[in-house]
Design a protein around this nucleic acid. Structure first.
Length: 428
DNA sequence: TCTGGGGTCCTAGGACCC
DNA sequence: TCTGGGGTCCTAGGACCC
């Protein structure tokens, strides 16, 4: 509940170069050396240590473009290892949960806290510094903490803490009453909520930094940047528009998509890929006791191809007769959809499925019929075996066996998942 | 032959985030 | 030669209704 006279203060804890830091924990020789971590399929650079940043390697840059610098400076390169990062994230978040009564886990490496909820703590930055030290000591992960009157200001404070190693990883912007000087140093593109497109638009209108942005007329901001732009402006002015959110919020969609390690040309291979993706998606929503009302399937060639006639992208929305999380039903519908959009003669680079219209498994009134009960029983068996013996031990036949199109992952640090031989393939 | 206005609901696409 | 994946939210515009 909002208490009128209470001054609310937010903190944002953000792990520094998270994926790269995780790799360092298990390989201390990499300390002080430039390290980068790649996206799926070894495509882009998604995490860089400070040493790698200083070499001029950019966030999101494709690996092949950074190749020269990487070789010249002997940068250590890792494929992403999400099993490792997930478990490291859990450790960090556990400590934060124990240290703050009210916390929102915002992403794998970030959490917002309402720091003003802490009783008997008068110096927030001293407390934050202490927590930061504990996290470093217990997990090996360096964290920066920003403190501000709103989430957006806490983000900015966090950025300042990161950019200035001298201040020990914690910065409290609430201690600065006149923020003009500090906001003038924040470029519009660095503001949380202002991305590439809006930042270009603002610069075109001679608005270069956060201070210039908050001086704009509300109506102008609302008209050109919609209601979210206006909220961002208010947040920068210290008026909180974004509350802490419950982490058990039910998701609204579930997406599984991958680029292929090798381009797909045949319908047979594409059927394998989309069957695999829809199976994973079905598993995910079963896990959360959800059912879906609609599948969206898309396939495309590489968007970086110069020649227009080599480019093809299409999608199909497949409504389901009744909400379900059954792999067999979802797979059938997906493959029918694929027939509608697959065209021969293209080098396909990526495909994906999105389950939407998600609702609670038991919320609908469609009672199971006898046949459905059998199917549900089969799905339970699927999940049980896959959880026990490793993913993909049992699967539907159309997923295929060879999977020549699987993604590349050539520089992975350590594979914790068991590599059991395929146990079962169910024909249906 | 002439052919309204206002409301709701849904979806695709685009913007943002990490 | 080689360019990630998984989310959310907002809006414009079409479909539909009276």
């Amino acid at each position: 509940m909002y208490i009128k006279n209470k001054k609310r203060i937010f903190a944002l804890a953000d792990c520094n170069s998270f994926y790269a830091s995780c790799e360092r924990v298990f390989n201390p020789k990499l300390n002080n050396r430039p390290v980068v971590v790649l996206s799926n399929n070894d495509g882009c650079i998604v995490a860089r240590t400070n040493e790698a940043k200083e070499l001029g390697i950019k966030m999101g840059e494709p690996l092949f473009k950074a190749k020269k610098i990487i070789e010249k400076y002997n940068v250590k390169v890792f494929s992403s290892n999400y099993a490792l990062y997930g478990s490291m994230s859990n450790r960090v978040m556990k400590i934060l949960e124990q240290s703050f009564p009210n916390i929102e886990i915002y992403s794998i490496d970030e959490a917002f806290m309402e720091i003003s909820d802490l009783k008997k703590i008068y110096d927030y930055s001293e407390y934050a510094k202490k927590i930061r030290e504990i996290i470093l000591k217990w997990t090996g992960i360096p964290v920066s903490i920003g403190i501000g009157e709103t989430k957006t200001l806490a983000k900015i404070a966090n950025q300042i803490a990161k950019d200035n190693p001298k201040i020990n990883g914690v910065f409290d912007i609430t201690k600065i009453k006149n923020k003009e000087k500090i906001l003038k140093k924040i470029k519009v593109g660095k503001i949380w909520g202002i991305g590439n497109k809006l930042s270009k638009f603002l610069i075109k209108n001679n608005i270069y930094n956060a201070y210039e942005f908050i001086k704009q007329d509300n109506r102008w901001v609302r008209k050109n940047m919609n209601v979210l732009g206006l909220k961002t402006k208010m947040e920068l002015n210290g008026i909180s528009c974004y509350e802490l959110e419950n982490s058990f919020k039910q998701r609204k969609s579930c997406c599984v998509s991958r680029s292929f390690g090798k381009k797909i040309t045949s319908l047979k291979n594409m059927r394998e890929a989309v069957s695999t993706y829809i199976s994973r998606a079905a598993e995910k929503i079963r896990n959360e006791k959800l059912v879906s009302n609609n599948i969206n399937l898309y396939i495309r060639t590489s968007p970086f191809k110069k020649v227009a006639k080599e480019y093809y992208s299409n999608s199909v929305s497949i409504p389901l007769n009744f909400p379900t999380n059954n792999t067999i039903i979802l797979n059938k519908a997906t493959l029918l959809g694929l027939n509608k959009i697959f065209k021969k003669g293209y080098l396909y680079q990526k495909a994906g499925v999105i389950l939407s219209g998600l609702e609670n498994e038991n919320s609908d009134l469609n009672l199971f019929e006898e046949d459905d009960k059998k199917k549900e029983f089969l799905m339970n068996a699927f999940d049980f075996i896959n959880q026990k013996y490793g993913n993909n031990s049992v699967r539907i036949a159309s997923e295929g066996i060879e999977k020549k199109w699987l993604m590349k992952r050539s520089k992975c640090s350590s594979n914790f998942t068991t590599n059991l031989k395929d146990l079962l393939v169910v024909k249906c």
